[in-house]
Design a protein around this nucleic acid. Structure first.
Length: 610
RNA sequence: GGCCCGGUAGUUCAGCUGGUUAGAACGCCUGCCUGUCACGCAGGAGGUCGACGGUUCAAGUCCGUUCCGGGUCGCCA
């Protein structure tokens, strides 16, 4: 057997070529390969190995007539054994080429075989085949190092690397400086829940991990950096989603002496460049732009998916005088009635429509009104009798509904209507196959409201963040009607996902103080929490603004995945645990003592939480 | 915090209105096989039905609690 006790990595076993690169023109070449056994096909007198490295797979032939030793060593091989192969590339015998494999024209005739390391039978097959069942994500995460060996996972990590590289190259070429900012910083009010780090040297005090480098990048502008960017890790201790991890990566940038359009131009150019360079996809420019108010009115969301139509139509005016109490009362209470037209859906069963009604109940929708127009033009609807023929005609006209179509209406407060119909639009768009396949439909959403009213806290909170500049023309409204103030803020949206958001920042102390006041901060509070920023503004702060884009979501969309866990090497579960490292974990009493921390749980309760 | 879905062999799953010894495929082990490539053929091993409690003559199956994973609403400046 060629296997030694500890073969290490002798010089003569260093790879000379990558498995996935061998081609017909390499025939006759001596090669050394390193990799993992993907599969083994033992024909008794002849063994075929599929040898895998990160570039791909090549077939190795172990033939006792070429090398008795290599052949015998090959008997022991199993999937995921790590081996070195020395041999010669040769064209495969006519008729045995494999068109499925990039290297399928050739194979490597082995003269020597070295087992670097054996492998237990893996809990799931690393070798991927297209028809095979998907392995449960829990198992994949527990053995992530095996999962990462799968070519589909490697390809995502490589894509991610290419994108980040392209981003760095772009900013470098455009005069931006990458600057690192602290991970141990201070907790600030507003925003997400912080991850806290207890201080050993300062009993009772805590650092916070950054939710974003927001304040540091503004201070860098005060510091005269002028053009900053960073591939920045951010932390938010909030509940997880398919597109949300507790730690995530942003492309963060900030620029001085710019307006909103300047920042958008840079980001747009950067994204177009990255998509071109990495995917070879040409994003049409300019990226369409709509105001927040338009987006909410037409799509019911601030992150519209523009890959299909199905826009919302406001029919409040058409039904203002209707006999239908549900609609009229909603309008009398200051609400809206809006609808969408589902093409060809007149055939929906009562059960299907009930299901839709059920689904929008979570948004507070009291019901879903519907009118189906049968192919023969007959209307089928539980509510049609409350409307005059003229009203029905008008509704059909407004929704452009014809025979075979289904009209769906929601009445209620504007947010309920928007959320419900926005949800139905997305659901039906996918269900009816209206989504343009393979498309990347970007959109800018601009002019967000400055504040939203927080029902829990009974006060205004910043829609973007408290450092966002109001629009100049709305500044007078700040004291009289703050809820009407629009911000110099903008989001970049792709296929219904928010990729990032940014704004022009406040750079003058008195404006910043007015914003804090509008949010209900006393001057003392503002000074305690953000005194350093207000002070910085007194030393010559340039006008500035910037943006932050979610790398994980970008890669998720570029790789066609439906969750960000697949594009992160070591992601966390929905309950924010790491199944491989088993984090978070308890720590020793000594560690807690050093940190002046006493856990307020009974020891058993602390364990039960695990 | 709420709602929904799931947890059965290493993996992916089936298991009906509760009823004999819980099955299949792949994987694994043994043997055979010199042109396969999801190799093939023959044989074999492999189960805390997530956990705990309850109902019952009898529970993978019904009920309750709980843990884990996923989706989603709230939350995420």
């Amino acid at each position: 057997m060629a296997e030694a006790m500890n073969p290490g990595m002798p010089k003569e076993w260093h790879r000379s070529r990558w498995c996935g690169q061998l081609r017909a023109e390499d025939a006759g070449q001596p090669v050394v390969l390193n990799g993992w056994v993907n599969r083994r096909r033992d024909h008794g007198g002849l063994i075929f190995l599929d040898l895998r490295d990160r570039t791909g797979i090549v077939q190795v032939v172990l033939n006792p007539e070429i090398s008795r030793d290599a052949y015998e060593a090959g008997q022991a091989l199993r999937p995921e054994y790590v081996v070195g192969v020395r041999g010669r590339v040769q064209r495969r015998p006519a008729g045995t080429e494999n068109a499925e494999l990039a290297t399928g024209q050739v194979e490597v005739q082995a003269t020597d075989l070295l087992i670097f390391n054996a492998s237990k039978t893996p809990p799931f097959a690393v070798a991927e085949n297209q028809a095979g069942p998907q392995v449960d994500e829990t198992v994949r995460l527990r053995y992530r190092y095996l999962d990462l060996r799968r070519p589909s996972m490697y390809q995502i990590l490589e894509l991610r690397h290419r994108v980040v590289k392209a981003v760095r190259d772009y900013f470098d070429a455009h005069g931006f400086l990458e600057v690192e900012t602290p991970m141990l910083t201070r907790s600030t009010p507003e925003g997400a829940r912080d991850y806290l780090v207890p201080s050993r040297l300062h009993p009772g005090a805590f650092y916070a991990l950054p939710q974003s480098p927001q304040l540091f990048k503004q201070l860098l502008m005060v510091g005269g950096i002028e053009r900053y960017f960073q591939i920045a890790r951010c932390f938010r201790d909030e509940d997880l989603r398919a597109d949300r991890q507790p730690e995530f990566t942003q492309v963060d940038l900030e620029m001085s002496f710019v307006d909103a359009q300047d920042v958008q131009d840079v980001v747009e150019d950067m994204m177009v460049t990255v998509f071109h360079r990495v995917l070879g996809v040409e994003i049409p420019r300019p990226i369409p732009r709509l105001t927040w108010a338009d987006a909410m009115a037409r799509f019911g969301t601030d992150k519209p998916d523009l890959r299909f139509g199905l826009e919302l139509v406001d029919v409040s005016g058409l039904v203002a005088q209707t006999q239908f109490q549900v609609f009229r009362q909603a309008l009398e209470k200051g609400g809206q009635v809006k609808g969408i037209q589902a093409p060809g859906c007149a055939r929906f069963t009562r059960k299907e429509i009930d299901a839709l009604t059920q689904e929008i109940a979570v948004f507070g929708a009291k019901g879903l009104a519907w009118i189906a127009i049968q192919p023969d033009g007959q209307r089928h609807s539980p509510i049609a009798r409350f409307f005059s023929e003229g009203e029905l005609q008008a509704l059909q006209g407004a929704l452009q509904a014809g025979p075979g179509d289904l009209m769906l209406f929601v009445a209620g407060p504007p947010t309920v209507v928007a959320q419900s119909l926005g949800y139905l639009r997305n659901r039906l768009g996918h269900q009816l196959g209206l989504v343009e396949p393979g498309a990347y439909r970007f959109a800018w959403v601009v002019d967000f409201p400055m504040f939203t009213y927080d029902e829990e806290e009974k006060r205004l909170v910043a829609e973007h963040h408290p450092f966002t500049s109001p629009k100049d023309e709305d500044l007078p409204l700040l004291d009289s009607a703050p809820e009407k103030v629009r911000a110099k803020s903008y989001d970049l949206v792709l296929n219904g996902f928010e990729l990032g958001s940014g704004s022009i920042r406040i750079h003058r102390r008195e404006v910043q103080e007015r914003i804090f006041r509008a949010m209900g901060f006393s001057p003392q509070e503002a000074g305690e929490k953000f005194g350093f920023l207000l002070e910085a503004f007194e030393y010559g702060t340039p006008p500035h603004g910037g943006m932050a884009l979610g790398v994980d979501r970008i890669i998720m969309l570029m790789s066609g995945r439906d969750n960000v866990r697949d594009v992160i090497a070591f992601p966390k579960t929905q309950s924010a645990t790491d199944l491989l490292m088993e984090a978070p974990s308890e720590v020793s009493p000594r560690q807690l003592q050093d940190l002046h921390i006493r856990v307020a749980l009974a020891p058993q309760a602390a364990v039960a939480g695990k």
